[in-house]
Amino acid sequence: MEINIGKFIFKEISPRRYVALVTPSELREAVEAVMMEESYFSSLTAIDFPKEGKIELNYIFWSVKHRAALILKVTVDRSNAVVPTIIDIVPGALGGELEAYDLMGVIFEGNNKLRRGFLASEDVVEKGIYPLRKDSGV
């Protein structure tokens, strides 16, 4: 089973879960397309893979129309983790972006609300480490 939204093809990985792999430059276009399908932003999971030198971002949307979770997978370089922000398209993604920046160190270009200490405590912020990275030592 597949769902086609715009130029993006979502492949079924398990019942009611559809995944599309996108590049950081395509992300905003993909989010705009997903939001046209009566979706709400559900979660942003950042997963650290230090061996591959990658951070995987999973933008999870729930589409009320399709009754399915639409997942956008974006992989960014670990040393230069930058993706464009989506909060102007989906204001609801603010919490997810703040959390991913504070705990995983992913920078969302264009989001001027990014700040350390949104969830992490002060001493961790002072040390400049991102606690959910595998090599943070926390």
Binding site: E38, Y40, S42, V90, G92
Partner: peptide
């Protein structure tokens, strides 16, 4: 606005 704000549950 509800979907764009991404609220969930009874609030939605």
């Amino acid at each position: 606005e509800a979907l764009r704000l991404s609220i969930v549950g009874p609030t939605l």
